[in-house]
Design a protein around this nucleic acid. Structure first.
Lengths: 244, 244
DNA sequence: CGCGTTCTTGACCCATATCAAAAAGCGTGG
DNA sequence: CCACGCTTTTTGATATGGGTCAAGAACGCG
């Protein structure tokens, strides 16, 4: 079963990837008080890589994708943000990735200058942001591992499990998840092509690990098998990855 | 020529990746005063993923590799740290990657509890650590882009340019860099095999972009061409990466 | 000088990208 | 509610880059 690991586990190898979102804390809550959300249309950018960072944002509704480009257009989707997630916790002079609404979305924001001032008086706030950034870094490293070393099946398994963990579905065991992003984004996130994403999903369906309906909604039928897949254990004795 | 970008440039697409290291600042300097360095032998671990984080470290000498594993041993090298770099700026309860000396190395450290106390009194210190962590995150995302979307030639180009930038060689234009890590580490860093790393390096040699001697030392003959390679521009019109 | 280790080179092959087309959704207007 | 057209996704056929396997060469160290 999925466990939503509130407290970290003392498990060295299978380090639970901390989620990138920082759900409301009292310190952060204060920040937005009385700020009316900004509405974004599908495809609209919050900011682009290289822009000066003016604000810290919180996603109120919708899904935001963060990404970087190579000059010739190849794209790496860094991550997806959902309701309650923060954007821009780095607090640097400029953004090093772009943020764009996938569907319609809404955000609220505070100027970074305000955040900085508050943080000076109230170190706990800064610690909080620091911890959020640390989770983000861990997630980035985790994705690196997936992209650099896992095959498509493992990458998809990781992606789906991570998504499921972020939407703690109370109770119901065949976990339902909604893909609020198109295949192209998933492909660019996992370093694959959309064709491979599609083929791999149908492969997972055939193995009865998941079930997909209407393209964007997925039921996880066998969470344990999926989690095993993440680490590549199923293939009984994967080639021989001997080292040193 | 290589420029060591002290101040960020307003260049949207070709965002300079901030270096992960934080060279000495007054605030940080104070931390280690009077701490005698810990010596590490080749291959020795500073800590492993999952260990509790007890200290914040600074590399005094040598090279440290940071990495994560999949259960079956596949490894992703997150990054390499050199003299002056900090390890453990996340300040979380446990490490989510392992840190290991490549050759002989030495570190000095401060307990995280001490860092936390100081940070409460002296917010600037925490801001400093936060900025370091932000650079680390940016580097991780940059590597993701390379691993997910670049071919071996581009990945090596990025790796070499990044290395050269971290060792600001005063003056001398054919920039000399030393690979303080074996091919296996480079491969595991870039998501390649050692064979591909080797072949790609000789390919770069044949193109007269670099020159390598005694396996571990490299001269960059044509910095501009290398930088162009990073973004994949040389191939005059790479397939067609059309997107939206 | 000799041995173990690291790196390079070569031959082969397979997983995944590419190219191409069909199918399934989805919104819109009648 | 259905028909139409556009977009997204799936499926199929083929090609190829980089992985795998296997020597051999270069190095470094005692």
């Amino acid at each position: 079963m999925f466990s939503v690991p509130a407290a970290p586990r003392p498990d060295a190898e299978n380090s639970e990837l901390p989620e990138r979102d920082a759900r409301p804390s009292r310190d952060l809550q204060k920040l937005w008080e009385g700020n009316s959300p900004r509405l974004l249309k599908a495809g609209q950018h919050v900011f682009r890589a290289g822009d000066a960072q003016l604000d810290l944002y919180e996603v109120v509704s919708g899904t935001i994708r963060l990404y970087r480009n190579l000059k010739d257009g190849r794209r790496q989707v860094i991550g997806f943000l959902f309701t309650g997630d923060l954007i821009g916790v780095e607090l640097q002079s400029q953004h090093f990735y772009s943020a764009q609404a996938i569907g319609a979305a809404s955000l609220r924001s505070v100027p970074v200058t305000t955040v900085r001032e508050l943080a000076f008086e109230q170190p706990r706030l800064l610690f909080e942001l620091h911890a959020t950034l640390a989770r983000e870094t861990a997630a980035a490293q985790d994705l690196m591992l997936a992209i650099g070393r896992a095959d498509p099946e493992e990458r998809l398994a990781r992606f789906l499990v991570a998504l499921a963990r972020r939407n703690p579905q109370p109770g119901r065991d065949p976990v339902a998840i909604v893909l609020s992003m198109p295949r192209r984004d998933i492909a660019d996130h996992l370093g694959l092509t959309i064709e491979t994403v599609s083929r791999t999903l149908t492969k997972l369906v055939k193995q009865r690990l998941i079930k997909l309906s209407r393209r964007r909604s997925i039921q996880i039928l066998d969470p344990d098998a999926l989690e095993a897949l993440m680490e590549g254990l199923p293939r009984v004795a994967r080639r021989r990855r001997g080292r040193r």
